[in-house]
Deep mutational scan, measured.
Amino acid sequence: GPREVTMKKGDILTLLNSTNKDWWKVEVNDRQGFVPAAYVKKLDSGTGKELVLALYDYQ
């Protein structure tokens, strides 16, 4: 199956793709996968990378 990404509340993840309104593709610890968009919030990183903050645990 697809590689699952797990996250804990407060984690910072790299946002790869947010074109789908329900599932965003993120990368964390060299793993890529989809997380519910409602579970993360975009951060203003000030760099080229888009980052998101995990609002809830997800696994």
Results as ranks from 00 to 15, higher is better:
40 V>G: 00
46 G>Y: 12
8 K>L: 07
13 L>D: 01
47 T>G: 14
32 Q>G: 05
26 V>Y: 00
51 L>S: 07
57 D>K: 03
26 V>S: 00
23 W>Y: 05
42 K>R: 11
58 Y>R: 00
57 D>I: 04
35 V>D: 02
57 D>P: 05
48 G>C: 06
41 K>Y: 06
40 V>Q: 01
25 K>T: 07
21 K>D: 09
48 G>P: 07
13 L>A: 07
5 V>N: 03
3 R>V: 14
33 G>E: 07
49 K>H: 11
28 V>F: 15
26 V>G: 00
53 L>C: 07
16 L>W: 02
23 W>A: 01
1 G>N: 12
28 V>W: 11
24 W>C: 04
24 W>G: 00
32 Q>H: 09
51 L>W: 08
13 L>T: 01
28 V>A: 12
56 Y>V: 14
56 Y>N: 09
31 R>W: 15
9 K>P: 05
52 V>N: 00
5 V>S: 03
53 L>G: 02
49 K>T: 10
48 G>Y: 07
32 Q>C: 12
59 Q>C: 12
34 F>K: 03
45 S>T: 14
3 R>A: 12
2 P>R: 14
22 D>T: 12
18 S>G: 08
34 F>W: 15
45 S>G: 12
27 E>N: 05
53 L>D: 00
30 D>E: 11
27 E>S: 09
40 V>S: 00
34 F>I: 06
45 S>V: 12
15 L>S: 01
47 T>Q: 12
28 V>Y: 13
59 Q>R: 09
48 G>N: 09
27 E>H: 05
42 K>D: 03
26 V>K: 00
13 L>S: 01
18 S>P: 05
59 Q>D: 14
4 E>L: 15
46 G>E: 12
58 Y>V: 02
45 S>K: 09
42 K>T: 07
19 T>V: 09
8 K>G: 04
39 Y>L: 14
40 V>I: 06
29 N>Q: 09
17 N>I: 06
2 P>L: 14
6 T>Y: 13
40 V>N: 00
20 N>W: 06
31 R>K: 13
31 R>C: 10
14 T>I: 15
55 L>I: 08
56 Y>A: 11
30 D>K: 09
27 E>V: 09
43 L>H: 03
54 A>G: 03
14 T>Q: 09
40 V>W: 02
49 K>S: 11
16 L>E: 01
39 Y>C: 15
29 N>M: 08
53 L>W: 04
13 L>P: 00
59 Q>K: 10
25 K>E: 14
8 K>D: 03
50 E>R: 11
16 L>G: 01
3 R>L: 13
2 P>G: 14
18 S>W: 07
27 E>P: 00
24 W>Y: 07
33 G>F: 15
10 G>M: 02
40 V>T: 02
23 W>G: 00
27 E>G: 09
24 W>K: 01
15 L>F: 03
58 Y>T: 02
53 L>Y: 08
20 N>H: 10
14 T>R: 10
3 R>S: 12
5 V>I: 15
50 E>M: 13
16 L>Q: 03
55 L>H: 01
14 T>L: 14
42 K>A: 07
3 R>H: 15
37 A>V: 05
2 P>D: 11
31 R>E: 09
54 A>K: 00
5 V>L: 15
29 N>R: 08
37 A>R: 08
16 L>H: 03
14 T>N: 07
11 D>S: 05
6 T>I: 14
49 K>Y: 09
19 T>Y: 08
39 Y>G: 06
21 K>L: 08
19 T>R: 10
31 R>F: 11
14 T>S: 07
12 I>N: 01
45 S>F: 11
38 A>M: 09
52 V>K: 00
14 T>W: 09
39 Y>M: 14
22 D>N: 13
27 E>T: 06
52 V>C: 09
10 G>Y: 03
38 A>R: 14
35 V>Y: 01
19 T>A: 10
5 V>E: 02
2 P>K: 12
50 E>F: 10
25 K>C: 15
47 T>M: 11
48 G>T: 10
17 N>W: 06
11 D>V: 03
56 Y>P: 00
37 A>C: 05
1 G>V: 11
27 E>R: 07
44 D>P: 14
57 D>F: 05
54 A>F: 03
27 E>F: 06
12 I>E: 03
39 Y>V: 08
8 K>M: 08
54 A>V: 12
9 K>N: 04
17 N>Q: 10
34 F>G: 01
28 V>L: 15
18 S>R: 07
1 G>K: 12
46 G>A: 12
40 V>K: 00
45 S>N: 13
27 E>I: 10
7 M>C: 04
36 P>N: 04
49 K>R: 10
35 V>L: 03
11 D>C: 06
36 P>Y: 04
19 T>P: 03
48 G>H: 09
8 K>R: 11
41 K>N: 05
17 N>F: 05
54 A>S: 04
44 D>V: 11
45 S>C: 15
16 L>D: 00
46 G>H: 13
44 D>H: 11
8 K>A: 06
15 L>Q: 00
35 V>N: 01
39 Y>E: 03
40 V>R: 00
52 V>F: 05
22 D>I: 13
45 S>E: 09
47 T>N: 14
54 A>Y: 02
17 N>Y: 05
39 Y>T: 08
36 P>V: 05
57 D>M: 03
17 N>P: 04
25 K>D: 03
42 K>F: 08
14 T>H: 09
37 A>L: 02
21 K>R: 10
4 E>F: 15
46 G>I: 13
2 P>V: 12
9 K>M: 07
9 K>C: 06
19 T>S: 14
54 A>W: 03
56 Y>R: 15
51 L>E: 08
31 R>H: 13
43 L>A: 03
9 K>F: 05
12 I>R: 03
2 P>C: 15
58 Y>W: 13
17 N>L: 07
52 V>L: 08
52 V>D: 00
30 D>P: 02
20 N>V: 04
41 K>P: 03
51 L>C: 07
38 A>C: 15
45 S>I: 11
46 G>V: 13
41 K>C: 14
45 S>M: 12
25 K>Q: 12
26 V>D: 00
56 Y>C: 14
37 A>W: 02
12 I>W: 04
32 Q>A: 11
58 Y>A: 02
53 L>F: 06
4 E>H: 15
56 Y>E: 11
10 G>N: 04
14 T>F: 10
20 N>F: 06
51 L>R: 08
27 E>W: 09
41 K>M: 14
